[in-house]
Simulated assay, not measured.
Amino acid sequence: MELTLTDGIAGLALLVSVLSAVSASNSANSSERSADSAALANHLAQHNERLTIYKSLQKFNFELHSKGNTLPDEALWSFFDAANISEFYYPQRVSKDLLDIADAANQYLAMRDLWKSHREPPADLDKARAALESLNEQGAVLRKMCKECDESLRAFLRMEPKAEG
């Protein structure tokens, strides 16, 4: 059997087409891996932002427990910033819970200010006592809201390892 120039050219064309197919397959696999890496990086970045919001709730809750009636206004405002952006990182229900906590905390601080004003001269002890009772009730509700939201956020933030298969 004798090979002609045409047979040689056809053989080279076949070899080039096989090499092109292998190269295209490798490019597709590489593109798929790049897309997977980008998706993972995006997921981790979102998780980090969610974690920052969660840490803000933790810090606020700690200050609420440790300082009680002397909770500084600044504790609310740093948490309030995180609660306001939570809609971009959490489902609507979770974001609403965080905003509800911020609103309740604002009412708590207003009641604290009212209680303080009734203690200043001329002091009205009956009004001060009533304001303190209301403040303590609001504080208990606020701590409960923080605890429930904490549990919700923890469940949402858990990063379970994916089964490889």
Rank of each mutant, 00 (worst) to 15 (best):
S25H: 12
N84P: 01
K59D: 02
R129K: 14
A41Q: 07
C149Q: 04
D73K: 06
N48F: 01
Q107A: 14
I53S: 01
K162F: 13
L5F: 12
S20D: 07
M111F: 06
L19E: 00
E87R: 10
L64M: 10
L132H: 14
Q138N: 09
L57V: 00
G68V: 05
A10E: 14
G11P: 01
G139A: 05
H43W: 12
E151A: 07
F88D: 11
M1S: 14
A35C: 10
E87T: 07
L109V: 10
V16R: 06
L3D: 11
S134L: 07
E87C: 02
D97K: 15
A130W: 12
E74S: 12
D124Q: 08
R119V: 00
L14N: 06
N26D: 10
A104Q: 11
L3M: 11
A155I: 00
Q138D: 05
K116N: 14
L71D: 02
R154E: 03
I9E: 15
K96P: 00
L99S: 03
D97Q: 13
M159K: 11
N106K: 04
S134E: 11
L3Y: 11
M111H: 05
P122H: 05
V18W: 11
R112V: 08
N69D: 12
S95P: 05
L76Y: 02
N106G: 04
A82F: 05
H65D: 12
Q46H: 13
R154V: 01
D36R: 13
A123W: 02
F80D: 02
L76S: 00
A105I: 03
E148I: 07
R33D: 11
D150N: 07
N42A: 13
A24H: 01
M1Y: 09
D124S: 04
A140L: 09
A75H: 00
R50H: 05
E74C: 02
G8M: 05
Y90H: 03
E87A: 10
N42Y: 08
H65W: 09
A140K: 11
A41G: 01
E137Q: 10
L14I: 12
A128N: 01
D113Y: 04
K162I: 10
A128S: 08
H43T: 11
T4I: 05
W77K: 03
R33N: 09
A105D: 02
L142Y: 08
L153V: 00
I85K: 04
K144G: 10
P122S: 07
A39G: 12
F88W: 06
I53N: 01
L57Y: 01
H118P: 00
G11V: 07
R154P: 01
M159N: 14
T6M: 02
A83I: 13
A123V: 07
A13Y: 05
E49T: 07
T4D: 14
G8N: 12
Y90K: 00
L71T: 08
K127V: 09
F88Q: 08
L64Q: 05
L12H: 10
L19R: 03
V22N: 03
T52G: 06
P122Q: 01
